[in-house]
Write a protein that binds this DNA or RNA. Sequence first.
DNA 1: TATTGACCTTATAGTAGCTTTATAGTTTAA
DNA 2: TTAAACTATAAAGCTACTATAAGGTCAATA
Lengths: 135, 135
Amino acid sequence: MRIGQLAQLVGVETQTIRFYEQQGLLPPPDRQDNGYRVYTEKHGEGLAFIRRCRILGLSLAEIHELQSYQDDPHQPCTAVNALLDDHISHVRSQITALQALEKQLVSLRASCNDEREVEACGVLAGISEGNMHQQ
Amino acid sequence: MRIGQLAQLVGVETQTIRFYEQQGLLPPPDRQDNGYRVYTEKHGEGLAFIRRCRILGLSLAEIHELQSYQDDPHQPCTAVNALLDDHISHVRSQITALQALEKQLVSLRASCNDEREVEACGVLAGISEGNMHQQ
DNA sequence: TATTGACCTTATAGTAGCTTTATAGTTTAA
DNA sequence: TTAAACTATAAAGCTACTATAAGGTCAATA
Ligand SMILES: [Zn+2]
Ligand SMILES: [Zn+2]
Ligand SMILES: [Zn+2]
Ligand SMILES: [Zn+2]
């Protein structure tokens, strides 16, 4: 299997596959005489794992960490679960921050209608005056 | 006022100020004979405006756009309000995406307790099996 | 006077996770 | 045979800074 086929199979670009290899997330495949990469099913599974982790918002560093746990299958999985817990709390704090931000933006937006000149724009005035409650 | 004083006044690093100048967000100040930048109150206001925009999550491009509106104060402020509306809906879609993600992560986490080996970890299995409902 | 320390200058590289571009070699189909 | 489609490497671009390097300037101190 060449890189293009693998890319199509998993739904990524070929450059992304080379990038993961370069980052040490995907083991370097064998090469043909012409230098073309040759992939196995294992690579496909590894790549799909990476992609699913990315969809879950895990960073490449976190994925790398998960992989290191997989290499040691008889350890307790405490660290895996902890990694996920950390990630969940990270996502939650992002949500909280964005919700606070939304509230601020909405109240800023409410301070203007569409009938004014820029000079008198409530939005611009609101930003310039700086009476912002920064969390 | 030199760059260090301005930085302390507004609460940013000196490099950030030079960066904004380089990006065209802050007008180039006059220089002393020795090359040191000399800032006025106007610069302080401009810099504070940029920082408040950043706190609101606006990108440098969006800030640049706002500045261009400010340069033309007798236009209607429709574009300003529209920019904010766009930004709000952007923030909202981020929140929605993160909430969906959180749900997914929590259910993944629930598929494991801390008493297993990595081999049998419900989290890793859940990712590997790939039965993920992508949004 | 010499030298320390705090400040300023520019230029360059690093961060995350790719994507894009440039340049070139290889395979395959018409 | 030639062109399309594929592969390779290396390097730059993206965002919004942050950090580092190597050096010039200035005031105060020893
Ligand atoms: Zn995380
Ligand atoms: Zn307005
Ligand atoms: Zn925006
Ligand atoms: Zn587990």
